[in-house]
């Protein structure tokens, strides 16, 4: 009989992990500066093994300090946004939910824009920090508004999120209207999602939050399945629903806050990756969470590689690429879902 077992989850995760590594390797061989693919990979492996590097100094800097950190960062963000989106879809029982639905992104955006207007350079610690604080503030406000008598009501929370988001959007518009031409371009790139704001240190800022969040959510994967059929149904099966909701909402919000703070509002990933994974592997969170994380990571690394190289030396915001590829691909999956499900 077909059920989800640990063996199945591990097998699929290892396969998807392998795909992710291959995509990261391809990603570091591509870019506006030509470094031959084999040499790029030799530079990477010799560095990992601690051997004296191949290639010249410039090439090593490009591969090890620019492309590799950026690919790893894109991987973390892609994984985080996908898992966060899957969680919000389950908790709100709303297929249209995405990581930004509770207004976390707007908080982060206000923070980021303030940082940009204050001239806290784009690749310093300042921008992600202020942006992260903005996101945390919006999480606190939304939760404060969305709880009644110690209980979380998904609909109230959703309304609180939408309203806080709209209010913050007004602030965003206000700040944009005050900004100068050069700042405006930076702000717009941030709002579309762009990794050029980030650097190697960004990984250190966000990976603890993303790893912790995904871990906490995975511990609850089976209970997230139960809440899909409604909160009462989950209670009937012995789940402490209020605790489950609180921990899951906060974990998913924290993951989102960390992700957007370093690279802006990358759309589509958190919406389409969980749905695509459900169509392929089914709705069980025990497989959905790791598969979404790994596929989301691969997807975003690939998209960012396109964003860097498509019109090189001009860089596109990665959000443009995720939307351009994600939309049509999702429609294709939807149209063929019957075929996929019988696999």
């Amino acid at each position: 009989m077909k059920i989800i077992t640990l063996k199945k989850v591990l097998t699929i995760s290892i396969l998807l992990g392998f795909v992710l590594i291959v995509i990261i390797l391809i990603s570091i061989t591509m870019g506006s500066v030509k470094v031959p693919p084999l040499r790029s990979i030799r530079i990477l492996f010799r560095a990992i093994l601690g051997l004296k590097g191949a290639g010249n100094e410039t090439e090593r800097t490009i591969i090890l300090s620019l492309r590799l950190p950026r690919a790893i960062l894109a991987g973390f963000v892609g994984a985080g946004l996908s898992v966060s989106g899957a969680t919000f879809q389950a908790l709100l029982r709303n297929p249209l939910a995405d990581p930004y639905i509770l207004g976390v992104s707007s908080g982060a955006a206000v923070g980021a824009i303030i940082a940009i207007l204050l001239g806290l350079g784009v690749s310093s610690f300042g921008l992600p920090l202020v942006s992260f604080l903005g996101a945390l503030l919006s999480i606190v406000v939304v939760f404060y508004c969305g709880r009644q008598e110690g209980r979380i009501h998904p609909h109230t929370l959703l309304l609180a999120g939408v309203i806080v988001g709209s209010f913050l959007s007004a602030l965003i518009m206000f700040f944009i209207s005050l900004s100068q031409k050069e700042e405006l371009r930076t702000i717009i790139f941030w709002l579309m999602g762009d990794f050029s704001f980030s650097n190697a240190r960004s990984i250190l800022i966000i990976f603890p939050y993303i790893l912790l969040g995904v871990f906490l959510l995975y511990l609850r994967a089976r209970h997230l399945n139960l809440i899909l059929s409604g909160e009462e149904s989950a209670v009937q099966l012995g789940v402490d629903v209020e605790r489950l909701k609180l921990v899951s909402y906060l974990s998913a919000s924290l993951i989102t806050a960390a992700s957007v703070s370093v690279c802006g509002l990358i759309g589509f990933v958190g919406l389409i990756i969980p749905h695509s994974v459900r169509l392929i592997f089914g709705p069980d969170h025990r497989l959905l969470i790791p598969a979404s994380a790994l596929i989301g990571a691969s997807f975003l690394v690939a998209c960012d590689t396109f964003a860097r190289t498509l019109l090189a030396p001009v860089e596109l915001p990665v959000g443009v690429v995720t939307a351009a590829f994600g939309g049509p691909f999702f429609i294709y999956l939807l149209r063929t879902r019957k075929a996929i499900r019988t696999l």
């Binding site: 029982r93 149904s233 089914g282």
Partner: peptide, 16 residues
């Protein structure tokens, strides 16, 4: 009972 995502009969029964 709400059915939002397509769990199989076996998966649903196992939830018990």
């Amino acid at each position: 009972t709400q059915l939002l995502f397509p769990f199989s009969v076996l998966e649903t029964v196992l939830m018990g």
